[in-house]
Simulated scan of single mutants.
Amino acid sequence: MSGPNRVLFDAPGPRARRRIRLATLLSVLLIAGLLALGLHQLARHGQLDRARWQPFGQWPYQRFLLQGLVRTLKAAGVAALLALPAGALLALGRLSPHRLTRLAAGGFVELFRSVPLLLVLYVFLMGIPRAGYTFPVFWELVIPVVLCTSALLAEVFRAGVLALDRGQSEAAHALGLSRRQVMRLVVLPQAVRLVVPTLVSQLVSLLKDTTLGYVVSYPELLNQGKVLGSYTHDFLQSYLTVTVVYIVANAALSQLAEALERRGRRRPAAGTPGTAGGASGVAPRLPGPREPKAAGGAGAEPLRPV
């Protein structure tokens, strides 16, 4: 049983569906058993005692973690605001008709796509200060994140541009628009609309990249959790609390990406019913050229010279 949506494999038959349900059931039971075993071991060692969790319900502890969350969101927000336009410019550079521009943009993208973010952080922490240049702690985290993230976003933007039909840009050129006008007015708006869900998903990774702020001693959320664990000597409780906060923040961004994707799907394309030609989607019938009536007939119009 195959169809247009069954590209990689056919739909499973009755026996295969029974095997899939059985494997799913066994997997759920195995995971539940491992979780129960883990909770049992934690309870045996007193890690689930109420006294260990009670401090994290008090406002001073919550405010301490909240301050770390605010710094994390600040670093991620500034990095996103800088990385998005930088990625778009790099994508345009890779699509430029000039060879030197393509080579420069491509070299930057390939370099920072290949180098780990942690290594770039160490360069800004220990390498650049030896040359006599120093940055504030905030920018020692943000600049490496921007460099690595912009390289990834450049490929996302470039994929969105290449995914568009070439007929649109050719039609725009036929109307007399320059290359810059075509890219700015026709190509980029549609490419951004195509890759918005991917961009938001990339922001989730950017938010997680800020956890490397401990390298430069930036007091982000994970670093605050580490300090709080050292103070209370309850590292497990502290890190689990931080984990829950990260899960909530990333889930919110993921929901935003899904909402934007659904909105893009609901938006009708040009030429579909309900867009042109009224609510019924039927284009109005245009009047054709007038035909002269029969010669000598009633109301016949005289022929005029062209």
Rank of each mutant, 00 (worst) to 15 (best):
G87T: 06
V204P: 04
E140F: 00
H98A: 15
A163L: 02
V182M: 13
A32S: 10
R290W: 10
T211N: 06
A251K: 06
S238E: 01
G160E: 01
S114M: 04
T275A: 06
L92I: 12
S201D: 11
G281E: 09
G297V: 05
L286K: 11
H173L: 11
R52Y: 07
V161H: 08
F108I: 00
I31S: 05
A300Q: 08
S217N: 13
S254M: 07
G297C: 10
L125H: 08
G288A: 10
Q255G: 09
L22D: 01
G77A: 15
F56A: 05
M1C: 09
S205D: 10
G297K: 03
D165I: 05
L188E: 06
Q168Y: 05
A83C: 04
V28G: 00
T243F: 11
L90C: 14
A79T: 10
G296H: 02
A269R: 11
Q202I: 07
H45Q: 15
A269F: 00
S238R: 04
P136N: 03
M183L: 12
A104K: 02
Y246W: 02
L212G: 08
G13Y: 00
L222W: 02
G274T: 06
V282Y: 09
L303Y: 11
R166E: 12
A83Y: 06
A76W: 13
R71M: 15
L82Y: 05
Q58M: 08
G127H: 01
A270L: 08
L92K: 14
A154H: 01
S254D: 07
P85S: 13
G160Q: 02
H173T: 10
F112W: 03
L82P: 06
P12C: 07
L103E: 13
Y231E: 13
L119G: 03
P292M: 14
S27W: 05
R63E: 15
L240F: 14
W59V: 15
R267D: 00
E291Y: 03
H233T: 10
L22Q: 06
P292F: 13
D165S: 10
R6E: 14
V145H: 03
L103K: 14
V227G: 08
Q62G: 13
L82Q: 07
